[in-house]
Amino acid sequence: MLNIRIICVGKLKEPYWRQACAEYEKRLHAFCSFSICEISESRLQDNPSNAQIAAALQTEGEKILSAAGNSFLFALCIEGRVLSSEQLAEKIDHLAVNGNSTISFLIGSSFGLSEELKKKADFKLSMSPMTFPHQLARVMVCEQIYRAFQINSHGKYHK
């Protein structure tokens, strides 16, 4: 069975975000082994310097890579490639067919992901040229993963 993980920085503070992710997690268990790994966010002072932000991103990136292990890495970043739902479904299916047993989607903090982590990613994925709060991005990724499995199984969810 394919393992799908979301590795993200920070916890979901609002119950409605947690409930939305939990609903998609429940639905996804019919298709794959699905989990969400939350990495602790680096503490920064108000108005941090660029050097402080870079150091925090570096620390968070190392924790993300450690949690990712040997998996195919989708780094979510604005400069990544925008895929349609059908293209993402095809990509996930292609990875599974070609022997990738674990796929990890990486979501950074409000400052994003480190440049080093983006370079190590197998695929840079953009949800949109717009900026979203990382809590909402997590829900959106859960939904798109579920939609991908529905597309690949010819389910009724995707119209």
Rank of each mutant, 00 (worst) to 15 (best):
L2H: 08
L2P: 02
L2I: 13
L2C: 04
L2T: 08
N3C: 01
I4Q: 01
I6L: 06
I6G: 01
I7Q: 09
I7T: 05
C8T: 15
C8M: 10
V9H: 02
V9E: 02
V9I: 15
K13S: 13
K13P: 00
R18S: 11
Q19N: 13
Q19T: 11
Q19E: 14
Q19F: 09
A20P: 06
A20I: 07
A22P: 00
E23R: 00
K26T: 07
K26S: 09
R27K: 15
R27D: 07
L28P: 02
L28I: 06
H29R: 15
H29D: 04
S33T: 12
S33H: 14
F34P: 06
F34I: 06
C37W: 04
E38K: 06
I39W: 03
L44R: 04
L44I: 05
Q45I: 08
P48C: 05
P48E: 11
N50F: 07
A51Y: 07
A51N: 12
A51L: 10
I53M: 08
I53P: 04
A54H: 08
A56E: 10
Q58D: 14
Q58I: 00
Q58K: 15
E62A: 14
S66D: 11
A67Q: 08
A67G: 05
A68F: 03
G69K: 12
G69P: 13
S71H: 10
S71L: 10
F72N: 07
F74S: 11
F74I: 10
G80W: 10
R81W: 02
S85R: 05
E86S: 12
E86Q: 15
Q87R: 13
Q87L: 08
L88H: 13
L88Y: 11
E90R: 13
E90H: 13
E90C: 07
E90A: 15
D93A: 12
L95M: 09
A96F: 01
A96H: 12
A96V: 02
A96Q: 11
V97E: 11
N98K: 11
N98G: 07
N98Y: 03
G99T: 05
S101A: 14
T102R: 06
I103S: 07
F105C: 01
L106P: 02
L106A: 03
G108Y: 05
S109H: 08
S109T: 12
S110L: 09
S110Y: 03
F111E: 04
G112W: 05
L113M: 12
E115N: 14
E115Q: 14
E116F: 06
E116C: 04
K119M: 10
K119Q: 14
K119D: 13
F123D: 03
K124R: 14
L125F: 14
S128P: 09
S128K: 08
P129T: 10
M130L: 15
M130T: 00
V141I: 15
C142E: 01
R147L: 08
R147A: 02
A148N: 01
F149K: 03
F149L: 10
Q150F: 02
I151K: 03
I151P: 00
N152P: 07
S153K: 15
G155W: 01
Y157R: 04
H158I: 08
H158N: 02
K159N: 07
